[in-house]
Design a protein around this nucleic acid. Sequence first.
DNA 1: ATGAAAGCGCTAACAT
DNA 2: ATGTTAGCGCTTTCAT
Lengths: 332, 332
Amino acid sequence: MKITIKDIARMAGVSTATVSMVLNNKDEHISALTKEKILSLAKEYNYIPNTMARSLVTKKTKTIGLIIPDIANPFFPEIARGAEDKANEAGYNIIFCNTDDNIEKEQKYIDMLSEKMVDGIIFTASSDRNNSLDKLQRQSIPIILLDRDIPFKGDVGRIVVNNKQGTYEGTKYLIEKGYKLIAFINGNIANETAKHRLAGFKMALQEYELEIKAERMLEGSFKREWGYGAASWLLNQEIPFDAVVCGNDLIAIGAIRALKDGGKSIPEDVAVLGFDDIYMSKLVEPELSTISQPKYEMGYRASELLISMIEKEKNMDRIIVFDTKLVIRKST
Amino acid sequence: MKITIKDIARMAGVSTATVSMVLNNKDEHISALTKEKILSLAKEYNYIPNTMARSLVTKKTKTIGLIIPDIANPFFPEIARGAEDKANEAGYNIIFCNTDDNIEKEQKYIDMLSEKMVDGIIFTASSDRNNSLDKLQRQSIPIILLDRDIPFKGDVGRIVVNNKQGTYEGTKYLIEKGYKLIAFINGNIANETAKHRLAGFKMALQEYELEIKAERMLEGSFKREWGYGAASWLLNQEIPFDAVVCGNDLIAIGAIRALKDGGKSIPEDVAVLGFDDIYMSKLVEPELSTISQPKYEMGYRASELLISMIEKEKNMDRIIVFDTKLVIRKST
DNA sequence: ATGAAAGCGCTAACAT
DNA sequence: ATGTTAGCGCTTTCAT
């Protein structure tokens, strides 16, 4: 049997307005006595405010939506954790949604979230063929585009990492270490991220006047199985290579396995460089060198930016660009 | 500028009641014509129902809370994914919360969730010194206790795995393979889970009349660092052992590393058995044999049970016990 | 087949 | 310092 401000008002012999004010600390002109009375009554009867009722009038729900492809993909848990931590600090809750990069699911979730009147959305968009964003904008729900920087001209916040710079530096490092025949196993190139990573790779080769050979640049998906398949293919085709930079760590982990199965030793015969720095990159053997993204912080800052947009703070940058960090372990 | 049923009612020249009924498919006695009119108006103006207003009267929010220690812990993403998938199928959203096994955070989240009027909560409880559950029960919010089966006499659903049976079978397998000096590196024994896993281990030793030596049973935390430390200690103390079963995979992965650093080869010198079957157990070298829990399904069934409790279905079991499955890979 | 009206629990002017 | 009132957007009897 839930108790409401009405009940408390009756018991305290005051109006609901008074109770509401006290309970929301807008109590400048409330006498200490009634304040006391209300507070103790609230405690005694274990009063729990009904935020739905509040939200209905204030138009704020203190909840934000987090739309990602898949929480079970090792790249996302840390991001989600960062986002949740900041949200929680600021008194917000997070509703999380897994889209599997499927546009219909994205649309459906976006609809659900806007029905739930979330105050804002953090969105890892699968692609830009997506009118959901326009829909959201029309409702003027603040949006943060996270990780995947799709072209969208609306007023959104962006959290991106400098992918091109990342592979550029990683590849450069390899070149300066003396590797000359460097392959690139990419994820799905429909993805902006994949494009930028490839661009950084090429840029480094160009700068050092190394040949950019198509047969050494493979494109597939951001999965371990693809990394395994691609590296095996390179081996089977007897395409010469002494290093391979990978679109992400999962690909790299698959590639390492294929290389080892093919009798290569790492990094002596072939160096392998990953991207992301997921938890398990420290656990494979040899430990994976990788281009690290600050995942936790990306999530954290995404929430932070979103909340500042929600609360209409001025003068903050709408775009935060993170630099990657080259982490050298044992595979290069 | 959001549009409401009131607007639609005005435009269609009908009452809000009629609009509400049509939009909720309670339209048995509504003429096809007005139905049509309302539906097309709703579409044209891109009507989005305000679920807060709805919830205020129906007392249902179609959202459920998921309280776990840490989404960045590799054990939880799959569970969360399973829970979210089922919730989504049934039209529910999930609010997720990370407690770090910290009681204050648990309490705070539980309060937030009950203010948000979630329809139910899936809860991985850190301990039973916790009156939050009573609080929830008083509000008659359905609860599922997931994974950690704390003693609580209220009316809750439970999703548990047969931990004792798991380590029993795993240990038995090791014994039958000929291992005789089996160590056990456990997590924090304050935890019911840890207790049961230890009990299964002992049971197997007993059954085969193997000595249960205290020096071979270590207790720490469910972390990789502890696994490394514990295995190193065993080595340094020159305590004889030819196999080690671990409280979870993270511990096992740490132990493998320590053993390798100590010059042991696995499984020739020492066999290592994990528990959980997290994603990365396939990636370490040698691939980890482990006692597998059906994490995705546990999450999925947790949502399913919770939703059936919310929707007051009868005759379903309030407790679902999952069996573990011994997965033999290369480390044993 | 449709409408009128009450009310969910709360906040926010505006009065007093 | 506190009360009155209206209303947020919706659902749900009960009438008609």
